[in-house]
Amino acid sequence: MTETMISLKKIEKTYKMGQNTVHALDHVSLSIEEGDFVSIVGPSGSGKSTLMNTMGCLDHPDSGEYVLGGSHVDSLKDWQLADIRNQKIGFIFQNFNLLGKLTALENVELPLIYRGTKAKERREQAMASLAQVGIEERAEHLPNQLSGGQQQRVAIARALVGQPSILLADEPTGALDSRTSEEIMDLLIALNKEGRTIILITHDLHVARKAKRTVSISDGKLYEGEHVL
């Protein structure tokens, strides 16, 4: 039996821009099982990133209930949310979001630093994580010495290093060419096969169809399947 990893109930998030209000998330309810691979599709500005940031405990919804791995996120304090981001969640961004002054290895070490892992173990785990995404020989390179695909691999290694149960990827292939996208997707599929829950945002239906399950968002409303497209 699989357990429910993520449970969203009637999540609302609105932004007020002067006169008009934007319903970024409009009573979104979603349940994701452990080990699932869900892709989220939808047009630009539909609320995909807002949903992902909510699930990633980066953003607070205005109302609704969010249970992550059994704990009610709404009632948690800032430092507890930081712990969740550090231990349960691995983020992968469209623009990689690596720290430019740190080497690949140091970037991957960062989550472990905030966890308080000792330097030696940190190094070993980070190297192992880099090896897992097949980029260990670039460990001492700075991000600007790496190609986009390589940078994204480093970012994935960073997301993986803390052994999180969920990987959240916001358009991870958005900045990559189709061949490199293919490689990154294969990597994510392999990680999912190992049992990791993956939630993937994409514009690309071709990419989305590689997931086990697809949901779509339009104007802040969530639909099962490729509803709007």
Binding site: G56, L58, D78, W79, A82, D83, R85, N86, Q87, F91, N97, L98, L99, L110, P111, Y114, R115, R158, G162
Partner: peptide
């Protein structure tokens, strides 16, 4: 600012 955002996203607390 962006660096701070990244660090917080991967688990840095206010105190860090």
């Amino acid at each position: 600012t962006r660096e701070i955002g990244i660090r917080k996203a991967i688990g840095a607390k206010r105190r860090d």
